[in-house]
Simulated scan of single mutants.
Amino acid sequence: MAASFDFSGQTVLVTGAASGIGLTTAKVLAASNARIALCDMNTKGLQSFDLAEGRHLVYELDVTSSSAVADTVKSVVRDFGGIHHLFNCAGVNPTANPLTDTTDEYWDQIVDTNVKGTYLMTRAVIPHLEAGASIVNVSSIAGSRATAGWAIYNTSKFGIVGFSKSMALELGPRQIRVNVVAPGHIHTPTNIAVKQGADAVRITGEQSSAMGRIGTMEEVASVVLFLMSDAARYVNGSVVDVDGGAK
């Protein structure tokens, strides 16, 4: 169960909003009275979202396109009158490969979405943010510890941490906070263990977490809401691991 916060009168732009942590966080934010700008390439994935009364709006967006990002942010500001928070959740998960087996296309896919997308979205929203606003970026426990075969993914997630800490210093004087949520093994549709079934989920949880289970998307969403809320008004440049005590 997500923690209770009130975001009445606030607009949150969420990328990667059509699935997984992005969709769950958007729904939890909506239940906390936020207005959501739902951004994703896969707009069909947002059909389960309650769009009644126009309180939330959908935008088809490729976060790797500078022009598309700029146009979408302008549209969100026009439609909602402003942006109070940005949740950069669009990302691509890794495929384990030795570096010699990776391709330029794989590098582009991972780095462009995970890092360039975060950069482009952040750059585009900054002129529209005021004191009290916040940005939460999604890294991973792979942003602080390396894994063989994940060199490109590690690069992208370490990069998000460094980028976010720099932006926290740059925007802090304007009272705009930038923080990072770093999930561990989470029960998402794209999690390899989830795809393999209940036994794989149990084994992964036992092996990866001190709590003996994998986490839920709602448990990540709760941390995102906290980081955006006034309860975290002096939290800036932080990386919050949500991993149950990763082993």
Rank of each mutant, 00 (worst) to 15 (best):
A2P: 11
D6S: 13
F7Y: 11
G9P: 06
T11F: 05
L13F: 06
T15Q: 09
A17L: 10
I21E: 04
A26G: 07
V28M: 03
R35V: 00
L38H: 00
L38K: 00
C39V: 09
D40S: 08
K44C: 00
G45Y: 02
L51E: 11
A52S: 15
R55N: 12
V58K: 11
L61K: 07
L61V: 12
T64N: 06
S66D: 15
S67Q: 15
S67D: 15
D71N: 13
V73Q: 07
G82W: 03
H85M: 06
H85Y: 15
H85C: 00
L86D: 01
L86A: 03
F87R: 00
C89N: 14
C89R: 01
A90P: 01
A90I: 03
G91C: 06
V92C: 01
N93G: 09
N93V: 08
L99T: 14
T102S: 13
D104F: 09
E105L: 11
Y106W: 07
Y106H: 05
D108R: 12
Q109R: 15
V111E: 08
D112I: 01
Y119P: 00
R123C: 12
P127D: 03
P127T: 01
A131P: 01
A133P: 05
I135D: 08
S139V: 09
G143W: 06
S144V: 11
G149R: 06
A151Q: 12
I152N: 03
N154W: 11
T155L: 15
K157D: 08
I160L: 09
S166A: 15
S166Y: 08
E170D: 14
E170R: 02
P173I: 00
H185A: 12
T188A: 11
N191L: 15
V194R: 11
T204E: 15
S208C: 03
I214T: 12
M217T: 15
M217A: 14
M217Q: 14
E219M: 09
V220P: 02
S222T: 10
V224P: 02
R233L: 04
R233I: 02
R233A: 14
N236V: 10
V240Y: 02
V240E: 05
